[in-house]
Amino acid sequence: MEIAVLGPLNARVGPASVVPSAPKPRQVLALLALNRGNPVGVSALVDELWGDRPPRSAEATLHTYVKQLRRMIGSALGPDHVLGPKDVLRRVPVGYRLDAPPDAMDVSRFERLASAGRAALEAGADAEGSELLVGALRLWRGPALADVSPGPVLRAEVLRLEELRLTALEERFGAELRLGRHRALLGELTALASRYPLHESLHAQLMLALHRSGRSWQSLELFRGLRRVLSDELGLEPSIRVRQLHEAILRGDTSLDAIRDHSDGGWSGAAQGHPDRASGWRGAATGAQVVAP
């Protein structure tokens, strides 16, 4: 069984799709898939399907959806398969469990590649880490569960997955900035900064990429736009790290142009000097570090 949730929901047994067309059975399959190998309680499934207003027949209706999924799985497996549909979608004491190998899920492959990429970055291997993160991000085919109307439980899962994707993107951008690939990042960073107008890290990475590409005036304009949106929407100023980056661009600090190919750069407080995994620069005069997130 192959299951993909990083984009439209896709689940196949061999060449046959086992994704139902009706919205609520799709929700059941999606929630079971995201918890592959672990039981999902009846209460969680009911909450996902009907929120805090379930019908009296909620559990019976849920069982009907499960039977529909099993029929589709059984048809795809065929009569001669060693497993039956109840071996794949099991009834367990608290609810139901979908059994499938770990690598059957695109989420599992994404998390494994992203973790390997992060470990490479921590070891100072930016080129290898970037390549692994690119491989992880290629598994995304669009927004998670793009064709499923999520209830409260799935909505939280979709947000979690999107945060994982954004983290992998930030780590990849940081590595590529350290490798001097700022020009190649401009288009992607510009699109993401527009999509996430309150995301300081992406804006700071774009500010640094623009500055290194000889477009400091656009970098300063970007900062002004970020400051305006944060003030209007949240009543906040940009973080001190983004403000330090802005001040360094205004000063024409040559440390901003330093390209590093190891792990000594990142967001860091000037006094502590403990870098993390984002790309940055070290102020030559003060030893302070100001970085793109």
Rank of each mutant, 00 (worst) to 15 (best):
G7L: 08
G142R: 08
R141C: 01
A16D: 06
P54D: 03
L9I: 04
L169R: 13
T64H: 15
V291C: 14
R36F: 00
E48D: 11
R109Y: 01
A44H: 07
A100D: 04
D253T: 02
P25D: 07
T254N: 03
L49V: 04
L245Q: 09
S239L: 11
E176P: 12
L164E: 14
G142H: 07
P197L: 12
V40P: 00
R228Q: 13
A11F: 03
A127E: 14
Q205C: 03
L159T: 10
A204G: 12
D126L: 15
I259Y: 03
G235D: 11
G117V: 06
R91W: 00
L192F: 08
G95S: 11
G78Y: 04
P101F: 11
L49Q: 05
V290P: 02
R241N: 11
R109N: 05
G235K: 05
G225W: 14
R227E: 15
D264R: 15
P8C: 04
R70S: 04
H81F: 01
G84P: 02
A116E: 14
L230R: 09
G265Q: 15
E162W: 12
L6E: 00
A76S: 06
S239H: 13
R181T: 03
V290R: 05
G180Q: 02
W50S: 02
V158G: 08
A33K: 03
L137A: 04
A204V: 01
P101V: 05
V18I: 15
R91M: 00
L69E: 04
L186P: 01
G266A: 10
L185R: 09
T286W: 11
R228Y: 10
W217F: 05
P39Q: 02
